[in-house]
Simulated scan of single mutants.
Amino acid sequence: MSEWGRLSPVQQAWALEHLGTAEVVRDMSWNLVESIVLHVRTSAGDVVVKAGDANNHHIARELSAHPRHTGPLVASGHAARLRAADADLRVMILDHLPGQLLEGTDAEQQPAAYEQAGALLRRLHEQETREDAEYWTRTIARALSWLDKPNRLDAEASAEARRILLSSCLTSAAVVPTHGDWQPRNWLIDGDVVRVIDFGRFGFRPAATDLTRLAAKQWRNRPDLESAFFAGYGNDPRERNQWRLERLQEAVGTACWAFAVGDVEFEAQGHRMLAEILSEF
């Protein structure tokens, strides 16, 4: 099967209708979820074609971010412009951004990259604030649903997480436009410039939710990276009780989701995250 053939026939036909003569340069998919991400070369320049199957929710989330909430970052060249999309077919075409994934490069260990990432996130978050009366109700219910699914969590840890979630009194929250997966694997580095990709987990959430994955990995034992990030972001949006609960649901979701898709390394990270956050309650 060709790389184009990973798209459904109707998705492929739609893409070629919009692109004309085009060649797949590279398949950039993670292959853990039902998403296909192709780097494509056309006579009008390089683009990214993203598509998903009927079970894919990431395309719809990403489309909800464009163009309004990605606008400030697109205007400055720090995020990709949406060229065309068909929500029903779950397929979209974006500009291809220069640079390489920041994860695994020397820049991942450099404070300057985190200061830029903090400044970019601030521009996303500051666009709008809403009050969501049901945010924590939904978030807790989702975490509990993960605990009800097959997983490899320690029985005592699972029971304690469930007890804390059920005893929470939090309901409403101030929410902003969030990326949902703000970390170096979704940042590009081009020279000394940081850009951001993949709004497939976009949604309105508390600002601090975009910090959970950094706190769980890159910021561990690296207070200099955390400080640099907040130098760019401008303030620390974390409130103690909400931050603990957010990290708890993130740990549960990480461990259970990773088990479901077979990502052993990420699952181990989720187990570590859960042990660490439970020790704070």
Rank of each mutant, 00 (worst) to 15 (best):
residue 14 W to Y: 08
residue 69 H to T: 01
residue 77 G to W: 06
residue 53 D to L: 12
residue 273 M to D: 00
residue 220 R to N: 10
residue 244 R to S: 12
residue 223 P to R: 01
residue 213 R to K: 14
residue 173 A to T: 13
residue 150 P to K: 00
residue 263 D to T: 00
residue 134 E to G: 15
residue 245 L to D: 08
residue 48 V to S: 06
residue 187 W to I: 01
residue 183 Q to V: 06
residue 65 A to S: 07
residue 92 M to S: 15
residue 196 V to F: 00
residue 160 E to H: 04
residue 206 P to M: 06
residue 236 D to M: 05
residue 199 F to D: 01
residue 88 D to A: 15
residue 14 W to G: 07
residue 107 A to K: 02
residue 261 V to Y: 09
residue 220 R to T: 06
residue 11 Q to E: 11
residue 38 L to H: 03
residue 118 G to S: 00
residue 5 G to A: 07
residue 230 F to K: 03
residue 192 D to G: 10
residue 236 D to R: 02
residue 109 Q to W: 13
residue 218 Q to A: 15
residue 266 F to Q: 14
residue 263 D to K: 03
residue 106 D to C: 09
residue 130 R to L: 13
residue 98 P to K: 04
residue 152 R to L: 09
residue 271 H to M: 12
residue 182 W to E: 04
residue 20 G to A: 07
residue 72 P to E: 07
residue 93 I to W: 05
residue 64 S to V: 04
residue 263 D to R: 00
residue 108 E to N: 05
residue 164 I to D: 10
residue 182 W to N: 00
residue 102 L to E: 03
residue 24 V to R: 08
residue 194 V to E: 05
residue 38 L to K: 07
residue 125 H to Y: 10
residue 93 I to V: 15
residue 99 G to N: 12
residue 168 S to R: 05
residue 157 A to Q: 12
residue 10 V to R: 11
residue 5 G to N: 10
residue 92 M to H: 01
residue 67 P to S: 13
residue 60 A to N: 10
